[in-house]
């Protein structure tokens, strides 16, 4: 994971540099703010990956001579099919569309989202 961490740190470093240069040449406020926000974005991922390297041993996947058979077992538990996503999408769309059409639609959207979130919690095993 070290390589990923270095990569994302590089991203953050780039935005610090370009943000400072842009501020120095008299760039607009919005642009400066956004460039420094990008530092935060890259830094967020970089920070997470650095923390990960501190708490975990190097992964099998990063070893140059690893094989698929070295990491047997369950990779993850995924639902093969679920109606939650489309229902949530409908609810979210109603929520946002209600801003244009009327708050009654947003209310419906909120209700759909709430119900789907509850169902998602029910779907979760852990």
């Amino acid at each position: 994971m070290r390589l990923e961490a270095i990569l994302w740190t590089g991203v953050g470093a780039y935005f610090v540099t370009i943000g400072l240069i842009y501020a120095a040449v008299g760039g607009d406020t919005a642009g400066i703010v956004l460039l420094f926000a990008a530092v935060g974005l890259g830094g967020l991922i970089a920070g997470w990956t650095w923390e990960w390297t501190r708490h975990h041993a190097p992964r099998i996947v990063d070893r140059a001579d690893a094989d698929a058979s070295d990491e047997t077992g369950i990779v993850g538990v995924y639902p093969i099919a679920s109606l939650r996503p489309i229902a949530l999408a409908l609810g979210t769309s109603a929520l946002v569309l209600g801003i244009a059409i009327g708050s009654w639609l947003s209310m419906i959207g909120l209700a759909v989202i709430a119900s789907q979130v509850l169902l998602l919690v029910r779907d979760t095993d852990t």
């Binding site: 698929a68 995924y78 639902p79 939650r84 996503p85 949530l88 999408a89 409908l90 769309s93």
Partner: peptide, 20 residues
């Protein structure tokens, strides 16, 4: 070499948001 994306349901949610 992965079996799917990291968050399959989030993936489907993204798709339906796009189409809608």
């Amino acid at each position: 070499g992965a079996p799917d994306l990291a968050f399959p349901r989030l993936n489907a949610f993204s798709y339906w948001l796009y189409v809608i």
